[in-house]
Design a protein around this nucleic acid. Sequence first.
DNA 1: TATGAATGAGACTTCATTCAT
DNA 2: GATGAATGAAGTCTCATTCAT
Lengths: 210, 210, 210, 210
Amino acid sequence: MKEQPNQERLRRFPQQARSQKRFNQLLDAAAEVFAEVGYEAATTNAIAAHAKTSIGALYRFFPDKLAIFHALAARYLNQIGELFAAFQVSEAAKLPLSSYISQVLDAFDQFVTANPGYRVVFVQSRFVSPDILAMDANLNRQVAHQLEAFFALRNPEQDPQERELIAAVCVEVASVLEILSLTRDQNFQKQVLAETKNLLIGYLQPYFPD
Amino acid sequence: MKEQPNQERLRRFPQQARSQKRFNQLLDAAAEVFAEVGYEAATTNAIAAHAKTSIGALYRFFPDKLAIFHALAARYLNQIGELFAAFQVSEAAKLPLSSYISQVLDAFDQFVTANPGYRVVFVQSRFVSPDILAMDANLNRQVAHQLEAFFALRNPEQDPQERELIAAVCVEVASVLEILSLTRDQNFQKQVLAETKNLLIGYLQPYFPD
Amino acid sequence: MKEQPNQERLRRFPQQARSQKRFNQLLDAAAEVFAEVGYEAATTNAIAAHAKTSIGALYRFFPDKLAIFHALAARYLNQIGELFAAFQVSEAAKLPLSSYISQVLDAFDQFVTANPGYRVVFVQSRFVSPDILAMDANLNRQVAHQLEAFFALRNPEQDPQERELIAAVCVEVASVLEILSLTRDQNFQKQVLAETKNLLIGYLQPYFPD
Amino acid sequence: MKEQPNQERLRRFPQQARSQKRFNQLLDAAAEVFAEVGYEAATTNAIAAHAKTSIGALYRFFPDKLAIFHALAARYLNQIGELFAAFQVSEAAKLPLSSYISQVLDAFDQFVTANPGYRVVFVQSRFVSPDILAMDANLNRQVAHQLEAFFALRNPEQDPQERELIAAVCVEVASVLEILSLTRDQNFQKQVLAETKNLLIGYLQPYFPD
DNA sequence: TATGAATGAGACTTCATTCAT
DNA sequence: GATGAATGAAGTCTCATTCAT
């Protein structure tokens, strides 16, 4: 993992339906393989094999291994964006804070459970590889921006820097605990989720009194 | 990172003083290199070079690359153990919870700041590599055990399962936020540390009323 | 460049006018690409793209990459044949040797300048690839034959072996110097051309006294 | 062949006798393989195999394939430099021109005959690959410089530009004809060598009258 | 017949690990 | 015991060629 930043993020963006499908197959496969062995140990051949394609097909879409990671991160970001979109509109701001947090965390929990690859992207994009770290694709920071938008609705007067800080803290906390929750059985997952809500609601209440 | 689990954790535990020193040099070097490029991209040659030894010498101490990682994790665990030991004894339990948390987090902050390799070990040992994950060297869980001991002093009646859960949550949260704090400048580090205290004290207060 | 000798030189010789045109477009494209990056680095896709056709279309004309090269060499040979034809007829033999040489070299210079791909074909067909070398498409030897015909007119008594030798020498010398001349600016090109005439006229004069 | 110019020409220059030997083995192997299939088609594995070493050993000496080529060219240049050195001293300038040319060409003929790889280096470094062409390792120009030194002794008044031009022409001509001579049997080789002398002496006589 | 997506052999290169010195 | 040269498996990526549409 010491690649130079690659020229173009994607070799070509798939427009045909068939390409689209192949593209998503590859990303699904990448998610699986990354989730299984991590970014570095994942081989492009393994990803292609999981996607039931040839290695050549993979390289028609992605200029290199790193680009696969970015595309996956981007897809997750989109999906999380949609997830947030379902709340931020109109009445979200009128919900009690605790309900909002609870619902968002439930949705996030479902999302991460359904997308085990997210775990790897979360981790890798923040900690492991300086190359990745250096890139703009910092998933968490982007997710935090979405949260900030919500905070702004609840408390427009808040210092934007403080808002950013708090959002970042929440995202980090929610993410690690989500990941922690997946390390054991379903019961544990539920317990950790409950604690997460507990923790974050307690943390945010003083900043956003209803 | 798909090495077979290695037979023996260490080829030989250093007994001579000189060996001891060489061993620690190697671990220091590993910490540096891991911190710089991550586990996978770190080469055993680079580690040996940083330690100003030969690659052959490295392999006299460690059967393979993974063993270096484990030894480093073990050393960190020891160090954190000592860090906790300074508190858990005697009067720690008599401190107000907030003081205790604050002091422990300060100590932890100093430790992680001084040991950038910890970040990598934390991450890798939890998320990235199943081989590592599968091993008993789960650093965080061990740290959590230390915290549980403290909790047990404060509230002996607490359900042990709940205690374990809460300790795990605290350790995860403290770790990610610590790592988050290191991603920007010193001011940010201080702010995140403050938020971490804030967050955890609020979280624990209900469980351990003074 | 270790293809098996291909069964058939061309998959089909273009007979329709439209095919003819497509065929020549492909050869033009190949010349460009070869000239730019050399034979090995030239990709069939790049050639097709330069010719504004599909890769599939390219493979309808040529069984493999090597065949493109041969077809290009053949086309150059034809063109050079025509170039010679303009001289060899009738009165060419009555010109003073120096005029003849001068004119032929001028024509050759113009040809090579206008066809940068020739340079690559010249080189590759003689030195680089044994596969190519082994084939009958040795451009230079064929050009030499044309020159021999002229020599035979000037001096029918000359030993044919000597004639062949001298012709080969002339062609080699003219070719490298032509190529040398193209490595710098136009002034250099003119100077080298002058030296080439000088050199070859001096060389041939004793064999073909006027 | 579109590599970026590699950082360092050599990974390490061999100083130990054993390294020295291995280094030369590798260069010999490279010469063989290049001579056999050309630069592009030569594989680093084949070179290592010919040298009876592992691919890893090869990469201890050379950062990449291109570096092997350069090292080989450099070695040839050294050898040719020594070859010239035997003449340029003292009395070389007192020899009749024809004797000098004849002796140099004989020596060059022996050298090229004994080093078939030279043919490839000569060709590649001038014509085929733009990447190589672009590099300073233009063998022929360097050889030409050596010839210029001799010319300067014979005719110090000569315009340096003219001198350079003539030297370049001579080197090119000698090189191609030498290569031509190797395309058939020994008899042909002798004949071409004789013609080369003939040609060059005739060419140079007017510039350097005895 | 034309297209260009797909295939996969094979090239270059790295690096964990061994072992002769 | 120490050294570091040597090994070679394995990874990333390219590109000639095929073939479904």
